[in-house]
Amino acid sequence: MDMVLAIVVGGLYAAGLYMMMRRSIVKLIIGLGLLSHASNLLIFTLGRLMRGRPPLIAPGAEALAEPYADPLPQALILTAIVIGFGVQAFAVVLIKRVYQIVGTDDLDQMKSTDEL
């Protein structure tokens, strides 16, 4: 399955980067979202896949029993998801604001910082 996911991640990266290279600012946001999914899935897959063995210590046990899914990548991804959401929310609101002020969604029109 990890090989399949490698292809999925590659596809997500390709789609994300393609969208980020568009001139429309909304597409940029969508691309950013795809890219963050790709990155999370990349870490998850590289931490090795383990079906149905979440890192939960069974009641009564003292320690996690083998085999288990690696908890560390999961912890990292959890942080990444939440941060990614923060970034996404901020970017979306920023774009809305920029659109209100500049009056365009074409990134090529947003080259200058000082001419509002």
Partner: peptide
């Protein structure tokens, strides 16, 4: 360009996955 980048990421992952991981 995007497809090339995506393909590279896939290759990179396959490369890493082909080696065993000992955490």
């Amino acid at each position: 360009l995007a497809l090339a980048a995506g393909g590279m990421m896939t290759a990179l992952m396959l490369m890493v996955l082909s080696a065993p991981l000992k955490s």
